[in-house]
């Protein structure tokens, strides 16, 4: 029973983190048909920005709770700025290219960011552990959990809710969904696709960086973070169905629980299980759980 609870809560915590990373990735793919490898870089940039901002904040001697605001602000703004630079600087020129080509282009961007991050922040690890411990711990069914981790679940739920609301209940969101489901018609109807792309990409990058920022207090922020994270995010969005937010949520929960089960029961297969879930899903549903419709060709 305790084991089950541990798997459930660990799984949800991990799933929350996965979802926050994957949500931005899948949103960008859905609207722009770009499977953005540089999303891993946005994550890393968010983590570095948050870690260095939090470190700086604690040297000021201001009230500790302000660190949370600083963390969010630093991560999101760094991500949005990086996202805008990438979209306006490179992707804009290549709009409409083959999807695989765009994967390769964003792979190039990821490589560039890997070194830029090293040049800006150096190669030593950053720690921003203070916010992680500040909120204390809770006991649930005899197990102890760090409150910061538990709050991550709430944050993920809020983001999921906000995305749902944004896409289903606002005018802009409805436009976005129109583009996701039928680009050509959307363009014909006269939706300003260019502006929509900029906004979407900025939101996507911001979400990626937010995920990095939220993770920063719990990890050592090291070079190579982006490369590590992006493949996990891929696993989630491909499992869920590229471009689908619901898919990302279900994929994240599925993979999160599977990994937690592996960690608690058979740690040797931890890494295996993440891609194992993806493989199993792809075998039976080649385009993922919630696949977008495809157009007739002849």
């Amino acid at each position: 029973m305790t084991l089950l609870l541990a798997i459930l809560i660990d799984g949800l915590i991990y799933a929350s983190w996965l979802f926050i990373v994957a949500a931005g990735l899948t949103l960008v793919y859905g609207v722009m048909r770009i499977l953005n490898m540089a999303h891993g870089s946005f994550y890393a940039i968010g983590a570095y920005a948050a870690a260095s901002a939090v470190g700086w904040y604690f040297t000021l001697g201001l009230p500790a709770w302000g660190a949370f605001a600083i963390l969010l602000l630093a991560a999101i703004s760094a991500g949005v700025v990086a996202g805008l630079v990438v979209e306006r600087g490179i992707l804009r020129i290549l709009h409409g290219r083959d999807e695989v080509i765009m994967v390769l282009v964003t792979y190039g961007i990821l490589l560039i960011f890997e070194d830029l991050i090293k040049l800006i922040w150096g190669i030593q690890a950053y720690y921003a552990y203070q916010p992680y411990g500040m909120l204390g711990r809770s006991k649930i069914g005899g197990l102890t959990f760090v409150n910061y981790d538990l709050i991550l679940i709430v944050v993920a739920a809020l983001i999921a809710g906000a995305l749902w609301f944004g896409l289903n209940r606002t005018r802009k969101g409805k436009l976005l969904r129109a583009v996701i489901h039928d680009r050509e018609s959307a363009e014909l109807v006269g939706i300003n696709v260019k502006r929509l792309f900029i906004t979407t990409f900025a939101i996507g990058a911001g979400l990626g960086a937010l995920a990095g920022g939220l993770a920063a207090p719990a990890i050592a922020v090291n070079p190579g973070l982006g490369i590590e994270v992006i493949v996990l995010a891929f696993a989630v969005v491909v499992t869920g169905g590229l471009g689908s937010i619901e898919g990302a949520l279900v994929g994240a929960i599925l993979i999160g629980l599977a990994r937690a089960a592996a960690v608690n029961l058979l740690p040797e297969i931890e890494l295996f299980v993440i891609y194992g879930v993806m493989t199993c899903v792809l075998i039976f549903r080649p385009h993922g759980l919630f696949a977008l419709p495809t157009a007739r060709r002849i």
Partner: peptide, 16 residues
């Protein structure tokens, strides 16, 4: 893209 992602997953399984 699905071929790309699937092949990536298989290699990551071996890595894991």
């Amino acid at each position: 893209i699905f071929f790309a992602m699937f092949s990536l997953a298989l290699s990551m399984i071996l890595f894991g």
